[in-house]
Amino acid sequence: MLKLKNVQTFYGNIQALKSVTIEIAEGEIVTLIGANGAGKTTTLMAVCGVVPPRSGEISFMGDPITGMEPDKIVSLGICQVPEGRRIFPYLSVAENLDMGAFLRNDKMEIKKDIEYVFDLFPILAERRHQAGGTLSGGEQQMLAISRALMAKPRLLLLDEPSLGLAPLIIKKIFEIIGKINAENNTTIFLVEQNANLALKVAARGYVIENGRITLTDSSKNLLANEEVKKAYLGL
């Protein structure tokens, strides 16, 4: 479904991704783990067209999307829940969800989908008229995921959904991630620092170090891998 081949990106003169090759099949949950600054967020931003690759190729459903404008990429069905959630702070919860459906015109279906995400996260229904910036961190994460779902993504990119949240809320959010994948057959590409958690929900994983993919295997094998254990699982 999604293929990255030898992707390289730069911020000015600084090279962020040196060689990233990733392949994700439809319906999978795949994770990308790595330390701070390894290039996890940049990889997702490259897929979305926000940081276009300088060399390498990205394709989605077999068609090249390298160098496309971000809004075109979103219209193909690639949606991101970015790091730090990026809720529109002065828009209400309902308006934030509305923005998620920006490219859609099917009003009736949008209404149904709002009901669906309110079902997933009932707290959002309670707070629907509140400004996004006044929500707690956990609520904002729920809103960010819901906003992405409003676009009816075929591929959902999640950037550190566990960042800065209490363990109980993290558990709930990861349950929902599994549920989204199981119920809608949405392909999920999950970026996490919390490798333990990510490898439990994902079937396969990639390890990124200094802008390079250094390892890829099934989650089971990665969890058992001595180096992964030492570097990312704290064992």
């Binding site: 926000v50 404008e69 971000p70 979103v74 949606c79 970015p82 920006f102």
Partner: peptide
């Protein structure tokens, strides 16, 4: 107008929801 408000609050996120900034 909605796109303008969203863009003024977070340009990157506006791109990520499909707004042509």
């Amino acid at each position: 107008g909605k796109a303008m408000r969203a863009t003024s609050q977070d340009k990157t996120m506006a791109m990520l929801v499909g707004i042509n900034v």
